[in-house]
Amino acid sequence: MRALIGAIRLQLQIVVADRGYLNEILTNPFFAVIFLGVVRAAGRRDLTTFAIVAPVLMTLWALSLEISGNVVSADRGVGILELVVATPTRFQTVVFGRVLAVTLLGTVGVVETWLVARIGFGVEVSVHHPGVLAGALAATALAMTGTALVMAGAFVLAGGARTFQNTMNYPIYLLAGVLVPISYLPGWLRPMSRLIFLSWSADLLRDSLQPEPAQDVLRRLSAVLLLGAGGFLIGSIILRLVLHRVRHLGTIGQE
């Protein structure tokens, strides 16, 4: 636990020192403007919740993609990984803490989007189901962290996988129905969408802003958490494998 907090603190210090993740945070308001503008131009005020939920999730996803690609390789590049390995703290704990810190930072997207809607478009966002919103955001942050752990492991295990790091934004936004619900996707793609926790998160967040009663909340929250937990488990296993492999191959200090 102490190590976890230490890792979170370290990551926040790095963010401040590097002005890191500024891009992801700057991107949010622009997307909010674009989506809200498109909806307004089409005269579809009923789609405002879609325009508001999407930038929030996109910010979170972009952040966790970025951190998962860097958290291991950056430490490895500057020779810190090998020193961390020689401490009593498990490496997975460090990675988890650092990713969690960035994910929590990502919730700043909620504020940004709200401000753009309010100031830029005079849209008053009313939360009809605050409990659902809070639950969905918390579950999403945790699931995002778990998923980032898998990606972090994969990026280290298969160096070539980092080619995908930048590719994994729009395909996932499309597939997970972050903006446009997955019912618009071809039927054969939908089962795949349901394996991405973001598809459940997006539906839940949109429902929390609609006046209609939200259905099946617990089941859908569980889906988010379960998929996140699965990510955490697989991620931990991959990271352990990675560490064993690099200790064995002797490539630990290398990039």
Binding site: Y170, L179, Y184
Partner: peptide, 15 residues
Amino acid sequence: AQVAFFASLGQLLGR
């Protein structure tokens, strides 16, 4: 994917 993503927004709008 980026282009498809925005095109799908058009589908949501319905025209």
